[in-house]
Design a protein around this nucleic acid. Structure first.
Lengths: 193, 193, 193, 193
DNA sequence: TATGAATGAGGCTTCATTCAT
DNA sequence: AATGAATGAAGCCTCATTCAT
């Protein structure tokens, strides 16, 4: 069941640790200065490792990015699929999706430079998964039938932009309620503040 | 009527043209590879000009970006303010805002690489203007009273993400209807596709 | 008798003025940042003229430098020759040389960046003239016979280094007395402060 | 005994050698075209190293210069202090100072371009040390009491300008005698050539 | 003659990547 | 594996100089 075997020797351990060190440094650097302006050197400098060591683990900045994405996706996407699958009302479907996403964004650690955030929409990669889940929910009558592609985009846009508000200090629950109310009932149903 | 006098000589003309050439090249380059990874050289290479010429017009990539932003903001923001000010129903307020934004995004042309789009959200420096207009609309009873900050973020997120769908081929009117229906009435009021 | 005819028309006048403008700007710039690091652009920028205009008057920075040197030499060297020729005692020969040089350095205008000062030893170009005058003075019994080359160098070194002290605030007369006493009688004959 | 441990591996050795290579090249370049007009590229071109390598050792031309100065000062200044401290007569004080300085200048090798010489006067950062030693010598009765600042400047000027004569071929001992005689007894006491 | 925009050479520096140790 | 110095391509920018107006 384990995707990766546990490190089985001292050497293995170090190997795993170095990889993690690099990923952690990259996450930090990307968050601070953005993926595009980050350099491999920046990542190495955020590390106690030598420059050559980087290349023992990754071929390029892009590859680190992929790894980071995969790691995040590995955590977030299953969580999202689960809450959506378990939803028995539209309200649950929507609210739990937002709530899960918002908490994850917080958990990821706040810094959150705009550039990386944006790129991080790809992290979600779960765009397609969301559309599929929406379609499934329409099929099973949970959500009214509508253009699934547009709805997916709409929810994504709401989620990312509202997540920014949370990073700026808004409360998760408040934002979740707001987003859910907006999606379920539109302007008319919004909480009165 | 012209704010700036027209070029008054061959020389002035060339100067104006070169500036435009650079801006146009920059727009293209930013759209293709994103602002952050674009280099001044990339921009120069996308023109027929010599490298030094760039610096006769702009001090840096950032400055070109500003010029581009200002140019766009100068066009888009007044349009948005106007449609919002003239709106006499919530439906008009919402629909016209989306429609105006979507048409503008198309007009701008750009392939629209994700990275630039994001940065280009600053183009909307009109974020604040939107919030103010929303507050004003709430005051005059056009929109129901709610958290203006969150609503601003929500509309922004919807607008940018749905604009992507349009760039991918969706029809402006269809997306406008969808977005408007979602905002006004939530999931329940969405067009049946 | 005039080396240069006076400007005879408006155009001539402007021409002369522009030349002077450039020379003046160059003098300033050289004094501030040194000849070697000064650029033609720096000189032009210190002027109200256009870059192209510079080349109507001088081919390069070096040529401006030459012109500046010539101008200075035209003033200083004849003065020095004269005082040395008129000297009837060794004391006069030495003292008047120093005094003349020191006053000239002050007159030139204080700023006096080290780099330009040094280069400006070439301005003196009168190195050879000094040697010849020393030889002549030895011949006519004014100065004791000794190695004229070394004496020339010695006086030059004294003059330039002590001129620095003057620029730092020492009084011309005091420094002149000091230098003269040192050269005529050595340490033993120096003023007691 | 060594302040710095000797290079302990092939690698360390190369590193030390490269540093020396760069310093040597810089010394040469500065001597030939002067510090101010020298470029980092000039220095690199005078080595077999790649451009980037320069920056593994120094951040800028200025830093190389500092290193060069420090290296020289480290050698010259203690020597000068020592001979001045050990002097028991005025003649020794003066003669040994000149002699030491002249030999050092020869030892340094350099073609000795004027510009570099001047800047290199800073090498003598020992200017202050000289003044202090002069004051001390006046106090202990070795030198007659006089204006120490002017005397310092005078000796410095003599030393640098006469060093030029040596570089042009004059003999060290002859120049030393000349300078010493001039300082001790003035024109009257100069050797008859 | 004066102008000032265009040019491209060339200086400075950082970067990704290699490779000997 | 880990190291980190070497490399040279490539980015940034300023410069001297030309030349159309």
């Amino acid at each position: 069941m384990d995707a990766k075997p546990l490190p089985s020797s001292r050497r293995e351990l170090t190997k795993t640790q170095n990889r993690e060190t690099i990923l952690e440094a990259a996450r930090l650097v990307f968050a601070q200065i953005g993926f595009a302006s980050a350099t491999v050197r920046d990542i190495i400098r955020a590390t106690h490792l030598a420059s050559g060591t980087f290349y023992n683990y990754f071929k390029s900045k892009e590859q680190v990015y992929q790894a980071l994405r995969d790691e995040e996706a590995l955590v977030l996407r299953p969580r999202l699929r689960q809450v959506r699958a378990q939803a028995v009302t539209a309200e649950e479907f929507i609210a739990e999706s937002f709530r899960t996403f918002f908490w994850f964004e917080i958990e990821k650690g706040g810094a959150g430079n705009e550039r990386f955030r944006l790129d991080s929409r790809e992290v979600m990669a779960g765009f397609d998964e969301l559309r599929q889940d929406i379609l499934a929910a329409m099929t099973r009558g949970l959500l009214p039938v509508a253009d699934a592609g547009l709805l997916t985009a709409a929810l994504t846009g709401l989620a990312f932009e509202l997540a920014e508000e949370i990073k700026r200090g808004a409360e998760v629950e408040k934002v979740t309620s707001f987003a859910t109310a907006l999606v379920l009932g539109g302007l008319g149903g919004l909480p009165k503040t």
